[in-house]
């Protein structure tokens, strides 16, 4: 699916954050981008696609599937090679995942699972990183640290974020999507908090509450 109102060009070495309310086509845009850049990009999708019954190690190793032939991959499934084990151990240390490599992913918490999915994308070792809310289940400080990890390993980064501050502080360029259209596409220096606040609230007519209607519980 291609979004009608989006004209998006990505330059090499650029860091772009995509912001926007839910349901405006951010994930679609990211998927589309990935289809275009497949051969040199790693995708960390919102549907993590982790395999519950498989170990933490194997779930991260899956990122390296394309680098090896199938015999190597199948052997690794039965018994992990030392080289890969060391690489994944180091990656886990950076991702602050301290569970043993053999832990089944089904036993991990939401935040840990998200880092495993991130680890798998990093382990693809591609020049371009495309992420779809890869830190949504993490606290902001850890999000900041892991974002730096992503930057250190990828020259070009495109990321859907819901943490506005994280986007403003770290990215070169910010793309605001609303209702399937680009609302703004600016260098992050030209975007400020007030503008973003208006971007998020100004999209809908204010809810009409008549005196007889029950009050909305959660707004």
């Amino acid at each position: 699916m291609i979004l009608a109102g989006v004209d998006f060009r990505l330059r090499r070495g650029e860091r772009v954050a995509i912001l926007g309310p839910s349901g405006t086509g951010k994930s679609t845009l990211v998927q589309h981008l990935y289809q275009r850049l497949k051969s040199e990009a790693a995708l960390c999708a919102q549907s993590q696609g982790l395999v519950e019954g498989l170990s933490l190690y194997h779930n991260i190793y899956m990122g390296a599937l394309a680098r090896h032939n199938s015999v190597y991959n199948l052997f690794n499934l039965l018994y992990p090679f030392k080289k890969n084990r060391l690489e994944v151990t180091e990656l886990c240390r950076q991702l602050e995942l301290d569970s043993p490599l053999a832990t089944q992913v089904g036993r991990l918490s939401g935040g840990q699972r998200q880092r495993v999915a991130l680890g798998r994308a990093l382990y693809q070792e591609q020049p371009v990183f495309i992420g779809d809310e890869p830190f949504s289940a993490l606290d902001p400080a850890m999000g900041q640290r892991l974002l730096e990890l992503v930057f250190s390993r990828h020259a070009t980064v495109v990321m859907v974020l819901h943490d506005k501050q994280l986007a403003l502080n770290n990215f070169d360029r910010i793309l605001g999507l609303k209702a399937g259209r680009v609302a703004f596409d600016l260098p992050s220096a030209e975007v400020d908090a007030a503008m973003l606040a208006e971007f998020y609230t100004g999209m809908e007519a204010p809810p009409r509450i008549t005196p007889h209607d029950p009050l909305p519980l959660h707004g």
Binding site: K38, S39, A41, A42, L43, A45, S47, Q48, G49, V51, H58, M62, G63, A64, L65, A66, H68, N69, S70, N73, L74, L77, A117, R120, Q124, Q126
Partner: peptide, 16 residues
Amino acid sequence: GQNLPAGTDMLSRYVF
């Protein structure tokens, strides 16, 4: 399968 790296060979894609 959708999240596996592009270029993964058929057999590995199927198994993993």
